[in-house]
Computed example of a mutant assay.
Amino acid sequence: MATTFFSRWKTGLERTRKVAFGRLSQLFGATKITEDIWDELEAILIQADLGVNITQQVIATLHKRVFDEGLTQPADLQKALQEELLQLLEPAPHLDFSHEHPAVILLVGVNGSGKTTTAAKLAALFTSQKKSVILAAADTFRAAAVDQLQVWGERLKVPVIAGQPNADPGAVAYDAVQAAIARKADYLLVDTAGRLHTRTNLMEELKKVYRVIGKALPGAPHATWLVLDATTGQNALNQARSFKEAVNVTGIILTKLDSSAHGGMAFAIQNELHLPILYAGLGEKPDDLQVFDRQAFVENIFEPR
Rank of each mutant, 00 (worst) to 15 (best):
Q178G: 14
L156D: 04
A173N: 12
T231Y: 01
Q239H: 11
R183H: 11
T200F: 13
G153S: 06
V190G: 05
L206Y: 05
D147C: 01
R211W: 05
A143N: 10
K131H: 08
A220P: 10
V172T: 07
L226T: 08
R155W: 07
T198I: 13
A136E: 02
V158G: 10
P169I: 00
N166R: 12
V158M: 06
A143F: 06
N235S: 11
G163Y: 00
Y174V: 05
K208F: 07
I181M: 10
V177Y: 06
D191I: 01
N166A: 13
A137E: 03
D186I: 07
T232A: 14
Q148Y: 08
V146E: 03
A220V: 07
A167R: 01
L196Q: 14
E205D: 14
K121C: 09
G194S: 09
Q129E: 15
I213K: 06
T198A: 08
L188M: 09
V158Y: 04
A216F: 08
A145Q: 11
D139V: 02
V146W: 00
W152Y: 15
D229A: 03
W225M: 12
H222T: 06
V160F: 00
G163I: 01
E204V: 01
T232I: 15
T224K: 07
A145M: 10
H197C: 10
K121H: 11
I181E: 08
A173V: 12
D229R: 02
T200H: 14
P169A: 04
V190Y: 04
W225I: 08
L228E: 06
Y174P: 03
R195I: 10
A182N: 13
N235T: 13
A144S: 14
K208A: 08
R199I: 07
E154T: 07
A182H: 13
Q150A: 13
P159R: 04
I134A: 02
D191L: 01
W225C: 06
R211E: 13
L202F: 04
I181L: 13
R211G: 10
G163M: 02
V151N: 02
Q129V: 10
G219T: 00
I213H: 04
Q150G: 10
R199K: 15
A173K: 11
K207W: 01
A193E: 01
K131R: 15
D168Q: 09
P169Q: 02
W225G: 04
A179S: 14
W152S: 13
R142M: 12
K121M: 12
T200V: 14
L237A: 07
Q178D: 14
L228K: 06
V133W: 06
K215M: 12
P218T: 08
D147M: 00
G214W: 10
A136W: 00
L206I: 06
I161K: 09
L217Y: 09
A193G: 11
Q164H: 12
V209N: 08
K130A: 14
L226S: 09
I181F: 01
L228I: 15
G153D: 03
G214E: 07
K130T: 09
A136I: 05
L206K: 03
A240V: 02
W152Q: 09
A124E: 00
I161V: 15
D186F: 05
Q234L: 12
